[in-house]
Amino acid sequence: MVSTIFLTATALPEVIWIGVIIKAVLILAVIAAIAGFGTYIERKILAFMQRRLGPQHVGPFGLLQLAADGIKLFTKEDIIPQHANKFIFSIAPVITAATAFIALAAVPVFPDFTIPFTDILVPSIASDINVGILFVLGMMAAGLYGPLLAGMSQGNKWGIIGSARTAIQFLSYEVVTGLSVLAPIMMVGSLSFVDFNDYQTDGLWLVVYQPIAFVLFLIAGFAETNRTPFDLLEHEAEIISGYVTEYSGMRWGLFFIGEYANMITIGVIASIVFLGGYNDFLFIPGWIMIIGKIAFSFFFMLWVRAAWPHVRPDQLMWLCWKVLMPLAVINVLITGLVIMI
């Protein structure tokens, strides 16, 4: 265990500040663009799955729909309700968007690479802290203050219901996420994403050893990113729009940028922890593999949205506490026993 840490400590080449800055800009630019672009992809794929065409008229194949939406959101009137708590109401969307991007600081997206013709090494993670996975999960948990504060500050009953659902849903599914990644953490013996990746360099992917943990993590990931089988926070048929009922313009847009960034983060964690990370696969280079995996997990989220219905809040809690959590605990126990033997 100690030896692996030594290895990573010595094997890391010198990372200079320019590399880190390039990485940070890369993450911000790429992920922010993808997060915005995600709305277009989501609409297009949902449309195809319902045999529709989706956005079509702005630009070729509707590709500039994103720009049209952006212009609309930026120029829309920013309404703050009269009896809302104005300060909290204003900062709530910022919390969602900011924490989503802070979480990405500790996530490795591409393998290390050197910029051609220079000696600048761009590291795989902008900031390689030893407890990366916990940091990312903690930051995503902190991001849930966005919906919570938004719902409570707007002085609207749908908002209050939405934020109450935020509290119960996220408090419960935090437990499942934590317990489900605990088993792989025990196997790898480290909390650093780089170690997870290196663990799977030669061996099989971790999903082979930990299929239950993978499924549990995916389910909890859907709940934490507020995606369809569990999108009770803004369930239109029940509570109008939940916590975003009173929002308009770019503040509303920030919630969605945060949500899509979180979806990508969940996709990155799933691909690095369970699906082999950014290792080369046969003849395919690692960076293509990781992009493919993230893209597939993003697609999977949209696919599920097209196919599966919502669950009721009581079913959600039932599923979490009576099914998923015991399963996760049993999985951790069995993993522990196997490791001990």
Partner: peptide, 15 residues
């Protein structure tokens, strides 16, 4: 659940 996923995917291919 996977039948449901299959149906939507089939419709996408059809479309």
């Amino acid at each position: 659940l996977f039948v449901g996923l299959g149906v939507t995917f089939r419709e996408m291919v059809n479309a």
